[in-house]
Design a protein around this nucleic acid. Structure first.
Lengths: 212, 212
DNA sequence: TCAAAAGTGTTCCTTCTACACCCATGT
DNA sequence: ACATGGGTGTAGAAGGAACACTTTTGA
């Protein structure tokens, strides 16, 4: 039964998690068809709530977290607010949940996930956000595969390689990976330069800017 | 004094309002140095709260409203959440407030306003959002002036005109405006085509998608 | 020697940039 | 006639798209 005092409006945080598993983009869908989420405690920031959700699933922090959008609707005269986040993980992330193809979600979270993919695709084009989905070293073919998985589109190998090598975002490690009956692939890492992945996201904001 | 039951976490909505006054980009700053805002009622959606804030100032609805970002911080063990919006108005908007240059804000709202301008500038480049700041008909010189006011940068007249006329977003009305000792200017209106202004914003969301 | 993926250049086309003069009008 | 802002074109640079073959390796 409901408590006797006035029902509070709820403030929930959901996180759309993504990893590239080497072939496809995967997400985490709970058995009830929803994204990982929890009600935000009254004494924690929303970023903290998102971190708490992820901490319940993963032993390590996400490679990247960004706020997505705040949804709200009114149900039985009570507003329900849903603050959503995107979290990116490296392919070898370990945690107590299954990764799966991004489908089969309940309607509301399907909307959230679709929008998360839209934003992820858009940021692929003008930021280096993709590197948060990559292992520390990787081949250009792997990087291309990640792009193709996210964009759901085939890319030209030569043009892709040129774009990446001229972008300044890659550093050749000098190492090569031999792993099949073919020429070994050069290994790269992310330079950290030109990291515009947080562009158009405000700079870690109010929680930091309140002085002691 | 505080009430006896547990203090609620607050949910506040603020709106960064913009208009182009024919020469510069202006906003609304209240006398205490804050953006127009209010606490969100428990039984209204956040969009409704934003609309309510604007309704207290303007007799007409804004030309464009978009959610900006949700900030939160913890103060005295209580989370304060601030959901921010951008609202755009035509130059001749009437309402019970003074428009002013976007400065002199309190720190938190200065952060919000700065970020709103960042987003507005970014959207100028890949959407037709600027048209929500224009009167129904306008000259290309006026349109360029609005771009320059927002970007805080001079643009080349010929290149600007070509970009606009080839974009498909303009329709020549056939009318001209005579207003000085010089050649009259052709008047255009917005075609409504290529309106990508809502791109990367989720499609009016949960409040609409809950069936009766 | 073959299969398999890595790696490599050029051409074309579109788009962006820089830049200077004539046009139509009111006074 | 002159001052004022409206309106126009072109050449060069840069960037994106299309496209096929050679290289290195393991088996």
């Amino acid at each position: 039964m409901n408590e006797t005092h006035t029902l509070p409006s709820t403030l929930r945080v959901s996180v759309a998690c993504f990893r590239w598993n080497g072939a496809a983009l995967e997400t985490i869908v709970q058995t009830d068809g929803t994204l990982p989420s929890t009600l935000s405690e009254r004494d924690e920031s929303l970023d903290t709530t998102a971190t708490r959700i992820l901490g319940d699933i993963f032993p390590e922090p996400a490679a990247y977290v960004e706020q997505l959008y705040t949804f709200s609707h009114v149900h039985c005269d009570i507003r329900e607010t849903l603050v959503t986040y995107i979290a990116l993980f490296a392919p070898d992330v370990r945690g107590s949940v299954e990764w799966c193809k991004p489908n089969g979600l309940a309607l509301r979270d399907a909307t959230v996930l679709d929008y998360a993919v839209v934003r992820l695709r858009a940021k692929l084009e003008y930021t280096s956000i993709v590197f948060h989905l990559m292992p520390p070293v990787f081949t250009i073919a792997e990087l291309q595969s990640a792009y193709e998985a996210i964009l759901d589109e085939r890319l030209d190998k030569r043009n892709f390689r040129r774009r990446m090598t001229t972008s300044g975002m890659l550093i050749e490690t000098g190492e090569k990976r031999r792993e099949g009956p073919h020429r070994p692939a050069a290994l790269y890492r992310f330079s950290g330069r030109a990291d515009r992945s947080s562009y158009l996201t405000p700079v870690s904001i109010i929680s930091e800017e309140t002085p002691a």
